[in-house]
Design a protein around this nucleic acid. Structure first.
Length: 343
DNA sequence: AATTCGTGGAA
DNA sequence: TTTCCAAGAAT
């Protein structure tokens, strides 16, 4: 490691000692490493998700399932329902599979390579858990690190091509000791100082080393490709009631909202509008429209309720007591649809 | 390599 | 209001 790289790591760790964010899944700087289960669980929840959104879910999961064996033994349905509202539901399916693999094996893998074998664990999470929970030296690169490093070294090639260079530079400044603290310090710096817009360079412990700041406009890094326009889709969902209960189905394992409970829908997707065909005959009334924005398309979902008619759906599903709807674990789109139907 | 996966908060 | 984007992974 060069003298310059050493001083970057040293300056960052000193800053972290007094400015580390306090988070439920984290140990204070210098303290013994936290439980690998809690580190892994938090990392899975945190991907593409804010710390504020994760906090209540992390509290509930660790309350209900305090260790990996408890999570491994939990019914899949309950875990999926507990994940409802957090998004990216394949994470929950992979979470269960990984918990069962770890529980069967007896312990978490303590190496990056071993962790990488678990479903839902990619390059980032494997490196982060190895560093934070097992104090292994690992090159941890998330979106925060990409931003900090691309600015520190003024890497002007656009994403995603610049990622290789970012990794090389991150490796060069990663110290052999306090690997977990270093990774978390980089993320804290990105989250609180080296922010996407209007970075607070006057407060930055690395300001003197930052090539982008020297150039004068650090916010231009990292350079990102233009985004595509989101298509606007139309769809419908059906609110079928009998004896104070509503008919819920389970969505296919793969694809949007996979494996989650849902209202019957008309086949809308990112690529096509729904066909508008109701699942049962009857006189339907439009209770309203829910506007919902996904990552890659926007959806106007018509919420259809049965004014009168024979409401006996065919195919798989279950009558769910409306009074207990909260426990069904509906994804946000369908929770909003239910709210509209009941309004 | 480019797409496909949710959601809610901030600017 | 719209746009951006937050501790990415799987395919």
């Amino acid at each position: 490691m060069t003298a310059s790289a050493q001083s970057i790591a040293s300056d960052l760790l000193s800053w972290y000692d007094s400015h580390a964010r306090v988070l439920p899944w984290r140990s204070p700087p210098g303290a013994p490493a936290p439980d690998p289960y809690r580190v892994w669980l938090s990392e899975v929840m945190l991907q593409q998700t804010t710390t504020a959104a994760v906090a209540p879910y992390f509290a509930e999961f660790t309350r209900r399932w305090p260790d990996v064996d408890a999570l491994a033994a939990a019914p899949e349905e309950e875990v999926m329902a507990a994940w409802a509202g957090l998004g990216y539901y394949s994470r929950a399916r992979n979470l269960i599979a990984a918990a069962r693999a770890v529980s069967a094996h007896g312990a978490f893998p303590d190496s990056e390579a071993g962790l990488r074998e678990l479903p839902g664990v990619g390059a980032y999470i494997a490196a982060a858990v190895a560093a934070i929970a097992f104090n292994r030296r690992a090159v941890v690169v998330d979106a925060n690190v990409e931003r900090v490093v691309s600015r520190l070294f003024a890497l002007s090639d656009p994403l995603p091509g610049v990622r290789k260079a970012i990794r090389v530079h991150t490796d060069a400044i990663t110290p052999d000791v306090r690997s977990g603290d270093f990774a978390q310090a980089m993320m804290d710096l990105g989250a609180t100082i080296c922010t996407p817009r209007d970075p607070r360079c006057l407060l930055c412990p690395l300001a003197d080393d930052c090539a982008a700041r020297l150039q004068g406009d650090p916010a231009q890094y990292p350079v990102k490709p233009a985004k595509k326009a989101k298509p606007q889709r139309q769809g419908a969902a059906w609110w079928i009631v009998r004896d104070e209960a509503v008919w819920l189905v389970r969505r296919e394992e793969k694809g949007m909202l996979g494996g989650m409970r849902a209202l019957p829908s008309d086949g809308w997707s990112a690529r096509a509008d729904g066909d508008g065909a109701p699942p049962v005959a009857g006189e339907w009334r439009k209770a309203g429209v829910v506007r919902h924005s996904f990552t890659h398309f926007d959806l106007d979902l018509a919420v259809m309720v049965l004014a009168e008619g024979l409401s006996m759906p065919t195919g798989g599903g279950e009558w769910w007591p409306i009074a207990d709807l909260q426990q069904a674990g509906l994804p946000t789109l369908f929770a909003k649809a239910a709210q509209r139907a009941l309004a």
